[in-house]
Write a protein that binds this DNA or RNA. Sequence first.
DNA 1: GCGTTATTTCGATCTTTTTAGAAATACCGT
DNA 2: ACGGTATTTCTAAAAAGATCGAAATAACGC
Lengths: 120, 120
Amino acid sequence: MENEEAVLALAALAQPTRLQAFRTLVQHEPDGLPAGELARLLEVPQNTLSAHLSVLARADLVTSERRSRSIVYRANLAEFQKVALFLLQDCCGGRPEICAPVIESLQPCCPPKRKERSRA
Amino acid sequence: MENEEAVLALAALAQPTRLQAFRTLVQHEPDGLPAGELARLLEVPQNTLSAHLSVLARADLVTSERRSRSIVYRANLAEFQKVALFLLQDCCGGRPEICAPVIESLQPCCPPKRKERSRA
DNA sequence: GCGTTATTTCGATCTTTTTAGAAATACCGT
DNA sequence: ACGGTATTTCTAAAAAGATCGAAATAACGC
Protein backbone atom coordinates (compact mmCIF):
# COMPACT_ATOMS: atom_id res chain seq x y z
CA MET A 1 0.00 0.00 0.00
CA GLU A 2 1.23 3.42 -0.94
CA ASN A 3 1.54 6.28 1.46
CA GLU A 4 -1.02 8.23 -0.50
CA GLU A 5 -3.59 5.46 -0.39
CA ALA A 6 -3.09 5.17 3.35
CA VAL A 7 -3.63 8.88 3.84
CA LEU A 8 -6.87 8.62 1.91
CA ALA A 9 -8.09 5.77 4.10
CA LEU A 10 -6.98 7.40 7.33
CA ALA A 11 -8.61 10.67 6.37
CA ALA A 12 -11.81 8.82 5.59
CA LEU A 13 -11.85 7.33 9.08
CA ALA A 14 -10.73 10.52 10.78
CA GLN A 15 -14.17 12.06 11.12
CA PRO A 16 -16.63 11.18 13.87
CA THR A 17 -19.67 10.45 11.71
CA ARG A 18 -17.64 8.47 9.21
CA LEU A 19 -15.80 6.45 11.82
CA GLN A 20 -19.12 5.67 13.45
CA ALA A 21 -20.61 4.76 10.09
CA PHE A 22 -17.74 2.44 9.29
CA ARG A 23 -17.87 0.78 12.71
CA THR A 24 -21.59 0.26 12.37
CA LEU A 25 -21.15 -1.28 8.95
CA VAL A 26 -18.48 -3.60 10.31
CA GLN A 27 -20.89 -4.71 12.97
CA HIS A 28 -23.43 -5.45 10.29
CA GLU A 29 -21.17 -7.59 8.20
CA PRO A 30 -21.80 -9.44 6.05
CA ASP A 31 -25.34 -8.23 5.46
CA GLY A 32 -24.69 -4.52 5.15
CA LEU A 33 -27.12 -1.69 5.73
CA PRO A 34 -29.19 0.54 3.44
CA ALA A 35 -28.05 4.17 3.40
CA GLY A 36 -31.30 5.39 4.87
CA GLU A 37 -31.24 3.01 7.79
CA LEU A 38 -27.66 3.94 8.58
CA ALA A 39 -28.65 7.61 8.50
CA ARG A 40 -31.44 6.87 10.96
CA LEU A 41 -29.11 4.94 13.25
CA LEU A 42 -26.51 7.71 13.26
CA GLU A 43 -29.10 10.45 13.37
CA VAL A 44 -27.73 12.50 10.51
CA PRO A 45 -29.56 13.79 7.42
CA GLN A 46 -29.45 11.41 4.51
CA ASN A 47 -27.65 13.74 2.17
CA THR A 48 -25.02 14.47 4.78
CA LEU A 49 -24.45 10.79 5.33
CA SER A 50 -24.41 10.26 1.60
CA ALA A 51 -21.49 12.65 1.32
CA HIS A 52 -19.67 10.81 4.07
CA LEU A 53 -20.33 7.45 2.50
CA SER A 54 -18.91 8.68 -0.76
CA VAL A 55 -15.72 9.63 1.05
CA LEU A 56 -15.51 6.15 2.53
CA ALA A 57 -16.24 4.65 -0.88
CA ARG A 58 -13.54 6.74 -2.55
CA ALA A 59 -11.13 5.33 0.01
CA ASP A 60 -12.45 1.87 -0.86
CA LEU A 61 -13.41 1.24 2.73
CA VAL A 62 -17.01 0.53 1.85
CA THR A 63 -18.83 -0.91 -1.13
CA SER A 64 -22.38 -0.31 -2.21
CA GLU A 65 -24.89 -2.35 -4.10
CA ARG A 66 -28.32 -1.39 -5.24
CA ARG A 67 -30.98 -3.70 -3.90
CA SER A 68 -34.28 -2.67 -5.38
CA ARG A 69 -35.01 0.77 -4.02
CA SER A 70 -32.28 0.79 -1.41
CA ILE A 71 -28.55 1.07 -1.76
CA VAL A 72 -26.93 -1.31 0.64
CA TYR A 73 -23.53 -0.41 2.01
CA ARG A 74 -20.99 -2.88 3.33
CA ALA A 75 -17.63 -2.48 5.03
CA ASN A 76 -14.71 -3.56 2.87
CA LEU A 77 -12.66 -5.51 5.37
CA ALA A 78 -9.99 -6.37 2.83
CA GLU A 79 -9.09 -2.72 2.43
CA PHE A 80 -9.31 -2.18 6.13
CA GLN A 81 -6.87 -5.02 6.55
CA LYS A 82 -4.50 -3.37 4.12
CA VAL A 83 -4.56 -0.19 6.15
CA ALA A 84 -3.92 -2.04 9.39
CA LEU A 85 -1.09 -3.93 7.79
CA PHE A 86 0.38 -0.77 6.37
CA LEU A 87 0.41 0.92 9.76
CA LEU A 88 1.85 -2.08 11.54
CA GLN A 89 4.49 -2.76 8.93
CA ASP A 90 5.40 0.79 9.45
CA CYS A 91 5.80 0.14 13.05
CA CYS A 92 7.79 -3.00 12.44
CA GLY A 93 9.90 -1.53 9.67
CA GLY A 94 13.33 -2.92 10.14
CA ARG A 95 12.87 -3.34 13.84
CA PRO A 96 10.59 -6.27 14.64
CA GLU A 97 11.53 -6.23 18.29
CA ILE A 98 9.81 -2.90 18.67
CA CYS A 99 6.63 -3.97 16.99
CA ALA A 100 6.35 -7.45 18.46
CA PRO A 101 4.62 -6.36 21.65
CA VAL A 102 2.15 -4.34 19.65
CA ILE A 103 1.17 -7.29 17.53
CA GLU A 104 1.14 -9.53 20.56
CA SER A 105 -1.33 -7.29 22.29
CA LEU A 106 -3.69 -7.69 19.36
CA GLN A 107 -3.93 -11.45 19.75
CA PRO A 108 -6.63 -11.58 22.41
CA CYS A 109 -8.79 -9.46 20.19
CA CYS A 110 -9.52 -12.49 18.02
CA PRO A 111 -9.17 -15.90 19.57
CA PRO A 112 -7.26 -17.81 16.88
CA LYS A 113 -9.71 -20.71 16.76
CA ARG A 114 -7.29 -22.80 14.74
CA LYS A 115 -7.21 -26.54 14.58
CA GLU A 116 -3.94 -26.47 16.48
CA ARG A 117 -3.93 -28.11 19.85
CA SER A 118 -2.53 -25.12 21.75
CA ARG A 119 1.08 -25.00 22.73
CA ALA A 120 0.82 -26.45 26.20
CA MET B 1 -10.12 4.17 23.73
CA GLU B 2 -12.93 6.54 22.95
CA ASN B 3 -14.18 7.27 19.51
CA GLU B 4 -13.11 10.86 19.86
CA GLU B 5 -9.57 9.98 20.85
CA ALA B 6 -9.36 7.66 17.86
CA VAL B 7 -10.53 10.38 15.52
CA LEU B 8 -7.84 12.66 16.87
CA ALA B 9 -5.17 10.05 16.24
CA LEU B 10 -6.44 9.12 12.81
CA ALA B 11 -6.67 12.76 11.78
CA ALA B 12 -3.13 13.28 12.95
CA LEU B 13 -1.92 10.47 10.71
CA ALA B 14 -4.14 11.42 7.78
CA GLN B 15 -1.80 13.97 6.28
CA PRO B 16 1.16 13.11 4.07
CA THR B 17 3.83 15.07 5.89
CA ARG B 18 2.63 13.93 9.29
CA LEU B 19 2.33 10.30 8.30
CA GLN B 20 5.81 10.48 6.88
CA ALA B 21 7.07 12.17 10.02
CA PHE B 22 5.52 9.54 12.23
CA ARG B 23 6.90 6.72 10.13
CA THR B 24 10.32 8.24 10.21
CA LEU B 25 10.18 8.62 13.96
CA VAL B 26 9.13 4.99 14.30
CA GLN B 27 12.13 3.99 12.28
CA HIS B 28 14.33 5.98 14.61
CA GLU B 29 13.03 4.40 17.75
CA PRO B 30 14.13 4.42 20.45
CA ASP B 31 16.59 7.25 19.89
CA GLY B 32 14.27 9.79 18.37
CA LEU B 33 15.17 12.72 16.15
CA PRO B 34 15.61 16.46 16.74
CA ALA B 35 12.91 18.57 15.07
CA GLY B 36 15.39 20.22 12.78
CA GLU B 37 16.86 17.01 11.49
CA LEU B 38 13.42 15.63 10.82
CA ALA B 39 12.56 18.79 8.89
CA ARG B 40 15.69 18.32 6.81
CA LEU B 41 14.87 14.67 6.13
CA LEU B 42 11.33 15.47 5.04
CA GLU B 43 12.34 18.62 3.22
CA VAL B 44 9.80 20.91 4.80
CA PRO B 45 10.36 24.26 6.53
CA GLN B 46 10.97 23.94 10.24
CA ASN B 47 7.96 25.97 11.29
CA THR B 48 5.66 23.95 9.05
CA LEU B 49 6.97 20.74 10.53
CA SER B 50 6.66 22.22 13.99
CA ALA B 51 2.95 22.74 13.39
CA HIS B 52 2.60 19.15 12.22
CA LEU B 53 4.52 17.81 15.17
CA SER B 54 2.25 19.69 17.52
CA VAL B 55 -0.73 17.97 15.94
CA LEU B 56 0.92 14.59 16.44
CA ALA B 57 1.78 15.55 20.00
CA ARG B 58 -1.78 16.64 20.74
CA ALA B 59 -2.87 13.20 19.58
CA ASP B 60 -0.23 11.72 21.89
CA LEU B 61 1.40 9.92 19.00
CA VAL B 62 4.75 11.54 19.64
CA THR B 63 6.56 12.83 22.67
CA SER B 64 9.23 15.48 22.84
CA GLU B 65 12.09 16.12 25.16
CA ARG B 66 14.50 18.99 25.20
CA ARG B 67 18.07 17.86 24.92
CA SER B 68 20.25 20.95 25.28
CA ARG B 69 19.52 23.09 22.27
CA SER B 70 17.51 20.51 20.37
CA ILE B 71 14.05 19.16 20.98
CA VAL B 72 14.08 15.45 20.33
CA TYR B 73 10.88 13.82 19.14
CA ARG B 74 10.00 10.19 19.59
CA ALA B 75 7.12 8.05 18.38
CA ASN B 76 4.77 6.96 21.13
CA LEU B 77 4.25 3.33 20.24
CA ALA B 78 1.96 2.72 23.19
CA GLU B 79 -0.58 5.16 21.83
CA PHE B 80 -0.14 3.80 18.35
CA GLN B 81 -0.87 0.37 19.73
CA LYS B 82 -4.05 1.69 21.30
CA VAL B 83 -5.19 3.03 17.96
CA ALA B 84 -4.44 -0.23 16.20
CA LEU B 85 -6.24 -2.16 18.89
CA PHE B 86 -9.21 0.17 18.73
CA LEU B 87 -9.57 -0.29 15.01
CA LEU B 88 -9.15 -4.03 15.14
CA GLN B 89 -11.49 -4.49 18.06
CA ASP B 90 -13.91 -2.60 15.99
CA CYS B 91 -13.43 -5.07 13.29
CA CYS B 92 -13.73 -8.00 15.66
CA GLY B 93 -16.64 -6.56 17.63
CA GLY B 94 -18.85 -9.46 18.41
CA ARG B 95 -17.79 -11.35 15.32
CA PRO B 96 -14.32 -12.85 15.73
CA GLU B 97 -14.71 -15.01 12.67
CA ILE B 98 -14.77 -11.91 10.53
CA CYS B 99 -11.70 -10.40 12.06
CA ALA B 100 -9.60 -13.53 12.41
CA PRO B 101 -8.18 -13.46 8.87
CA VAL B 102 -7.27 -9.83 9.32
CA ILE B 103 -5.28 -10.51 12.44
CA GLU B 104 -3.80 -13.60 10.88
CA SER B 105 -2.46 -11.61 7.98
CA LEU B 106 -0.63 -9.37 10.39
CA GLN B 107 1.45 -12.18 11.80
CA PRO B 108 4.18 -12.26 9.16
CA CYS B 109 4.69 -8.57 9.72
CA CYS B 110 6.74 -9.31 12.78
CA PRO B 111 8.49 -12.63 12.79
CA PRO B 112 7.99 -13.70 16.41
CA LYS B 113 11.71 -14.31 16.80
CA ARG B 114 11.07 -16.45 19.80
CA LYS B 115 13.57 -18.92 21.13
CA GLU B 116 12.11 -21.44 18.69
CA ARG B 117 14.59 -22.97 16.28
CA SER B 118 12.81 -22.00 13.04
CA ARG B 119 10.47 -24.35 11.30
CA ALA B 120 12.72 -25.82 8.62
C1' DG C 1 25.44 40.13 28.32
C1' DC C 2 25.92 38.92 23.18
C1' DG C 3 25.82 36.40 19.13
C1' DT C 4 24.57 31.89 17.42
C1' DT C 5 21.78 27.87 16.91
C1' DA C 6 17.31 25.29 17.46
C1' DT C 7 12.64 25.57 17.73
C1' DT C 8 8.12 27.50 18.40
C1' DT C 9 4.44 31.02 18.10
C1' DC C 10 2.14 34.63 15.53
C1' DG C 11 -0.33 36.19 11.65
C1' DA C 12 -2.07 36.10 7.24
C1' DT C 13 -3.54 33.64 3.17
C1' DC C 14 -5.15 29.81 0.72
C1' DT C 15 -7.32 25.38 0.26
C1' DT C 16 -10.19 21.76 1.88
C1' DT C 17 -13.92 19.88 4.48
C1' DT C 18 -18.33 19.79 6.56
C1' DT C 19 -23.05 20.67 6.47
C1' DA C 20 -27.60 20.67 4.86
C1' DG C 21 -31.61 22.63 1.89
C1' DA C 22 -33.41 22.00 -2.51
C1' DA C 23 -33.56 19.74 -6.81
C1' DA C 24 -32.61 15.68 -9.48
C1' DT C 25 -32.34 10.69 -10.30
C1' DA C 26 -33.61 5.81 -9.78
C1' DC C 27 -36.68 2.24 -8.66
C1' DC C 28 -41.02 0.13 -7.73
C1' DG C 29 -46.15 -1.00 -7.46
C1' DT C 30 -50.27 -0.19 -9.49
C1' DA D 1 -47.53 6.82 -16.88
C1' DC D 2 -47.97 8.32 -11.98
C1' DG D 3 -47.12 8.78 -7.09
C1' DG D 4 -44.23 7.39 -3.49
C1' DT D 5 -39.93 5.96 -1.51
C1' DA D 6 -34.74 5.89 -1.39
C1' DT D 7 -30.74 8.07 -2.46
C1' DT D 8 -27.64 11.17 -4.64
C1' DT D 9 -26.05 15.55 -6.78
C1' DC D 10 -26.03 20.50 -6.76
C1' DT D 11 -25.01 24.55 -4.45
C1' DA D 12 -23.54 27.66 -1.19
C1' DA D 13 -22.06 29.11 3.36
C1' DA D 14 -19.34 28.23 7.50
C1' DA D 15 -15.63 25.97 9.73
C1' DA D 16 -11.23 23.84 9.88
C1' DG D 17 -6.64 22.89 8.18
C1' DA D 18 -2.15 23.79 5.72
C1' DT D 19 1.61 26.69 4.63
C1' DC D 20 5.20 29.71 5.55
C1' DG D 21 7.51 34.49 6.42
C1' DA D 22 8.66 37.04 10.31
C1' DA D 23 9.11 37.65 15.14
C1' DA D 24 9.65 35.49 19.69
C1' DT D 25 11.58 32.11 22.97
C1' DA D 26 15.14 29.03 24.81
C1' DA D 27 19.76 27.23 25.39
C1' DC D 28 24.49 27.38 24.80
C1' DG D 29 29.53 29.17 24.50
C1' DC D 30 32.32 32.83 25.13
